[in-house]
Design a protein around this nucleic acid. Structure first.
Lengths: 212, 212
DNA sequence: GTACTTGTGTGACTTATATCACGGTACCTA
DNA sequence: TAGGTACCGTGATATAAGTCACACAAGTAC
């Protein structure tokens, strides 16, 4: 982990801040599939994503996991910021989708930097705005769209992050969308008929041309 | 509008800040039902709610309005904060549920106060956290709950804000929940059978005892 | 009063999604 | 190579919700 990487990932932050991040951030490596943050866990630091992709979920009482959005390298977990600032517990579940590296910034720096570095304040505000927007889009999807549209959105999102070859089972998708395997299977079949995907065992290939 | 009211509404803000708010905030009165903020509108100020209740909606392409949450006196529109900070346009629709008074703070003070007043920063962060939580709860409701539970939640929320006598039609409720009148009518009938409500014309009365 | 508007109740039907019950297939493992 | 396990396909059926059609009742306008 070196300063150049930090600078590339967070280009909008001030000079001195890059150093501080490097100095005070604790590096944490997680393997794909590992849980970074559980619901109910107390948050003691703000997380910046250095490498990999993190998936955020909302959990219901029976433990069903509903996918909300991704976090990429260069982004911050807004939830960890809000919660951290008030020493509160997590409302969400975060899992590493790929192997990932995150930088945990102890919460005292959150406040300190906020007044010291204008760029940090901007970064935090921007993070919020973006996460807020993602949440609103998620609400749109479940409030206004049917499963077929949601599946399409979902797959496109995944493809954007992971490439056209998605290594996931129908069951995985169904879990993320809070649906059932059979439904997803059938919808995928329809998409295959429209030449949007090729279905393999344990993976699907997105071949839909962007501009039909 | 006097300083004592501001102090009562925003008890956690610093002394000097109350004065600044009073000095720089433009008072805006809106009648019940009026629109405060349209989707796509550019946001030039942060809004603090002084009096009344504001309802926030998400709109779909056909103009259907999906209720997200309420804002009460003493709260701020987080969306207006995020957007204002970046000179961006609104993603949501805000309507006055009751007659209301809001204070519009020009966005330059947003940044200024953020570095000048620790309590302002805390206030903004807290607002975010609370709105974020509301959004997550909204997602829970539509992702995990059926219409009957959602209706119950919705009515309880309304009752908390407006009292047990809700002056609204079944159609109004259906719009907020993105459902249809007939469905709401039927569900209300069931609730009436369980002695949770009394249905009148143009109004319903919530009589469910809190601890059965 | 009559006519017109708005809100409500209800049965019949449609549609989207979930669930159940299988059977088949690829892959692993001993 | 046999048996087990996870994945996938598909028909049958169930359920929640949305839609259509229409009757009626309460309020409003004149």
């Amino acid at each position: 982990m070196d300063i150049t990487k930090i600078k590339i990932l967070f280009p909008n932050l001030e000079e001195g801040l890059h150093n501080e991040i490097l100095k005070h951030g604790a590096i944490k490596e997680v393997k794909a599939g590992e849980t970074l943050l559980k619901v109910g866990q107390t948050i003691r630091s703000t997380m910046l994503i250095i490498d990999g992709i993190i998936k955020l979920y909302r959990e219901d009482d029976e433990g069903k996991e509903f996918f909300i959005y991704h976090l990429d390298a260069g982004q911050a977990c807004s939830l960890s910021m809000v919660c951290a600032a008030k020493h509160e517990t997590s409302e969400i579940l975060a899992k590493a989708l790929t192997d990932a590296t995150v930088l945990a910034i102890p919460l005292e720096f959150m406040d300190l930097w906020m007044s010291k570095y204008k760029s940090w304040y901007q970064f935090v505000i921007t993070s919020y705005r973006n996460r807020f927007e993602e949440l609103l889009k998620t609400i749109d999807a479940i409030a206004f769209s049917n499963m077929d549209e949601r599946l399409e959105d979902y797959l496109e999102k995944q493809v954007k992050k992971l490439g056209a070859n998605l290594k996931m089972t129908h069951q995985d998708i169904a879990n993320d969308l809070n649906s059932s395997r059979e439904v997803i299977s059938r919808l995928l079949k329809k998409m295959e008929a429209k030449n949007w995907v090729v279905i393999h065992r344990n993976s699907i290939e997105w071949i839909k041309s962007p501009h039909p």
